[in-house]
Nucleic acid binder design. Structure first.
Lengths: 191, 191
DNA sequence: AATAACAAAACGAGCGTTCGTTCCCGACAA
DNA sequence: TTGTCGGGAACGAACGCTCGTTTTGTTATT
């Protein structure tokens, strides 16, 4: 086995992520991860304190990536409309390149095995989305309705599609639906 | 203990549902249910074959209730718009009277502990919703976009709100948002 | 030589489940 | 009325097993 600590650590994380998504957190034992990664129990516990800390590391990593994705999308556009579209587009293409990550962040019941994690809707990326909506209302781009409702229509619809894609019930790739989805969602909440 | 088999059975189911929602399926042991319900292990296994069959019974029950709810809402209205609104309204009021059930059907990763259950989006109630959307497109009420997209906008937004309500992050009761939500969603997909 | 990295075996708690037993109550004969 | 059966319901100690974790031993690197 390659004696490269960083590589081993990443191997543990990616293997665990794959198993967690495929079979769920509780149905994936440390021994399963050991076997799938071709490592030993000792090696895994050398790099991580516990099974929970593996899940925690995965969660932190993907939350970080999602945050920077939303920040990028938000920072490189001026209008609320362009920002929202960029966010949804980025989430969709993230699903193509890294479906496991998106699946994990959307489907996994993190609070069930990460009891100390805050509810996902109060994490940074979701706070940013809410903020963009509020600015759009303030600037007159978006109907003066409750920001929660506007967010639910626009991003809730996108998440629903991500869910369906994760369950493998969509016949087309996600990008195929992007234009229609965003237009319909935006028409619903724009002035 | 009251020697009424039906009462005991219901007690097991309601207790299990509460624990499953509160702590998750895997974190709730049969012994926990035994303790919370004030029963014995033997009694529980007298009424159910296994822990999984308890979850299965809960799942079947709520899926049945959801199906009849959607069928009622669909049958007592003529237009797609009225049907969709009735469905969302019924789901919202179901959340008020029986939040645990809604939480279970929306949040729980059923496939994780009910491996033989079909994906929830291919169950009866969700098929019915899809069908209503398709009829609305055929009759000219709804924009001729992909039915998947229309469904995601309208029902995905509602489900997002149900999620948020389940996480306890909404300041108002769900009914408060119903009008705004449905109007925005419908404006997004109607002609 | 010292230390980080990995391997393998073993551990003990807790899980879902089993099973022999007890309890309760209606049926029915004496 | 009384007694005694039958059987469904409830009980709970105990089992086998899997889990996450710890301990101990080996290899590689500096």
């Amino acid at each position: 086995m390659a004696r490269d600590p960083q590589k081993t650590r990443d191997l543990i994380l990616s293997t665990a992520l794959r198993l967690f998504v495929e079979k769920g957190y509780f149905a994936s034992s440390i021994h399963d991860i050991r076997h799938a990664a071709g490592l030993s129990i000792g090696s895994i516990y050398h790099h991580f304190d516990s099974k929970e800390s593996i899940a925690s590391a995965i969660y932190d990593d993907l939350l970080g990536r999602m945050t920077s994705m939303v920040e990028d999308a938000s920072g490189s556009h001026m209008t609320a409309k362009a920002k929202c579209r960029a966010i949804i587009s980025a989430m969709f293409s993230m699903h193509e390149t890294d479906p496991l990550t998106v699946h994990f962040v959307l489907h996994a019941r993190h609070r069930e095995f990460l009891p100390d994690a805050p509810p996902i809707c109060s994490t940074r990326p979701f706070e940013l989305m809410k903020q963009i909506i509020e600015e759009g209302i303030a600037s007159g781009e978006i109907h003066p309705i409750d920001p929660v409702v506007a967010g639910a229509i626009l991003f809730g619809g996108a998440m629903r599609l991500l869910h369906l894609a994760g369950d493998g019930v969509l016949s087309k790739p996600l990008d195929f639906y992007l234009d229609e989805l965003f237009e319909a969602g935006w028409r619903g909440i724009s002035v």
